[in-house]
Design a protein around this nucleic acid. Structure first.
Lengths: 338, 338
DNA sequence: TTGAAAGCGCTAACAG
DNA sequence: CTGTTAGCGCTTTCAA
């Protein structure tokens, strides 16, 4: 007898043979149960279970055009902001019996389109988190496959975004309330959509509150990016710094500590994202939290609805952010008033 | 004209029609180029590119049995240990033109088998990272699909593991060198294979060095798990604690700090994994690093080789770990000698 | 070297 | 309610 090999998977046909019915009947029993006689259906279902039958989704997808999979693209899983989102999305998708395939672009903009194309073929819809690609390229990608953008907006495409501007504005108001008059802002990656939002929020709130704003350039959205901003921060006469995100804020705080500059004693630092680490360090980091679970569910729901509708109805959802006041911004010890 | 709809994908047949050849020829031009006349082939390839033809991998997979995808299962993407591994695996797979589908089990053992089954259907091979499931169940899963285990071993199944025991032994030797005589160990999840290894390493090294070992029970492999271990640690007369992993170590350090117990002044703390955060906090955490990139590449290489061979040749690779000495374990200030 | 034909596992008309 | 027929997009015999 020919060598064992991989246990040949049981197919729908095997079940049909065993049940003494046609393949179509089995198919129906599985996908449109109400169109099959109750007794036959039960027999088939039992048999299928016994034989350990598992439908081949690829084959099914070939004909229905649906795979039961969703594709999820993220720039960098090592950025602690994303895992939370990924998990929320996965959890919600699983509830609806969709499986999620996660792909990491490693912050490589050039890689995005190709990975999307590959992914698109094997999923019913795409969730694109913080895609860095240019609007034109992004639009192209969204046209080929039902897509929901997360943490980025684009005209005529459904999206779930965070109220980034509101978030940084709240941060600025909080700092103003603490007595700060001169604020520094350390920006993120050049192409970042959310970065632009955050800067806008900082600007308007500073203007409104009559604070002096020092824009301290842009750095990589990482811990190292934060440490690299040290000199810029020291050179500017600011008493508080808002960073593009928590990682940058933490890197900066660390660099300040290395120079024995007290946070928040001599300078306050705030971030954005509320990554888990923000609450684990001392002083704990004041930041802006994104309701990840809510955003993830919303994104999945949106996408699923699109899959149902023939003519996808664009919806752009904004979820509010929440200020998390913690140690790194107060109480203000001695604000220098020079 | 009928509503736009999704741009219908160009199929192999479209290319064939355009080139004036049969589908088979196009297929061959794409997959076994040497079996097609050079000029026809070139014409086909050009045309395919022009039309933007992308093979439907699902359809191809239906017949070849290969999808060009690898499946990757991880217990928790929010655990900062995993993203590094995931990224390494993805990078290496992409080089070989394989796409990686990541699925997070959310530390839910019961979920593992089902997710694996779903995944298995759509991939050529499986990479299972730190699976928590019981050996029997795990074996079942590995029998259905070519599989490589990462950070877990099982008889007659290929795997890439870390020298966990060596790592904790080195840690203990380091602590002994610092003058510690009474060591505490805070364990991880009950079913954890690597946890067992780490404990073993601690035990043998303590025995060898003549140190007193206090096994302080098991906690969740999280920051909260670490803080919850505080009382146990305080109750034991130890001057140094080795935790199951960095997250636990950090949680514990934090809890100690809250009680104004100096680390490493009054008690040293060490972790395992060398997550990014270990280097970002003060005092920075002494820990054991895993060569993630190396392990990831090795795992993918192993799996790819299996896919080539008819009779998978089991290989179990162990990659060495490296001690990272940092602030949290020294220099020892005043070890109490009572 | 190429084409015709068959079929991977499944679903979707269409009859019955 | 059920079986038959056809075919999703692709590869792979088998002949020519």
């Amino acid at each position: 007898m020919p060598g064992g090999g991989e246990a040949m998977a049981v197919t729908l046909r095997d079940v049909a043979l065993a049940a003494g019915v046609s393949p179509s009947t089995v198919s129906r029993a599985l996908t449109v149960p109400e169109k099959v006689d109750e007794r036959t259906r039960e027999r088939i279902l039992t048999l299928a279970a016994e034989l350990g039958y598992r439908p081949n989704r690829a084959a099914r997808g070939l004909i229905t055009g649906r795979t039961g999979n969703l594709g999820l693209l993220v720039p960098d899983l090592a950025n602690p902001f994303f895992p939370g989102l990924v998990k929320a999305i996965q959890a919600r998708a699983l509830e609806s019996d969709y499986q999620v395939f996660v792909v990491d672009t490693d912050e490589d903009v050039a890689l995005e389109p190709e990975l999307i194309r590959q992914l698109a073929k094997q999923v019913d819809g795409l969730l694109l988190c913080s895609p860095r690609m240019r609007p034109a390229t992004l639009r192209e990608a969204t046209e080929a496959t039902p897509t929901v953008l997360v943490n980025r907006a684009l005209a005529r495409v459904s999206s779930v975004t965070f109220e980034n501007g509101e978030g940084t504005s709240a941060l600025i108001r909080h700092l103003a309330g603490l007595g700060h008059r001169r604020i520094g802002f350390v920006g993120g990656p050049a192409g970042s959509w959310s970065g632009a939002q955050r800067l806008r929020g900082v600007r308007t709130a500073c203007a409104t509150a009559g604070l002096l704003l020092h824009e301290l350039g842009q750095v990589a959205p990482t811990f190292e990016g934060g440490t690299s901003a040290l000199e810029l921060v020291l050179r500017a006469p600011v008493t508080a710094v808002v960073a593009y995100n928590d990682l940058v804020a933490i890197g900066l705080s660390q660099a300040l500590a290395e120079r024995s500059i007290e946070v928040p004693g001599r300078i306050s630092v705030a971030g954005f994202d509320d990554i888990p680490m923000a609450g684990m360090i001392r002083p704990s980091l004041t930041t802006v939290a994104m309701p990840l679970a809510r955003a993830g569910s919303a994104a999945v729901d949106l996408l699923l609805r699109h899959l149902g509708e023939p003519e996808p109805r664009v919806r752009q959802i904004q979820v509010p952010t929440a200020l998390r006041v913690r140690g790194s911004t107060g109480p203000s010890l001695g604000l220098d008033e020079s």
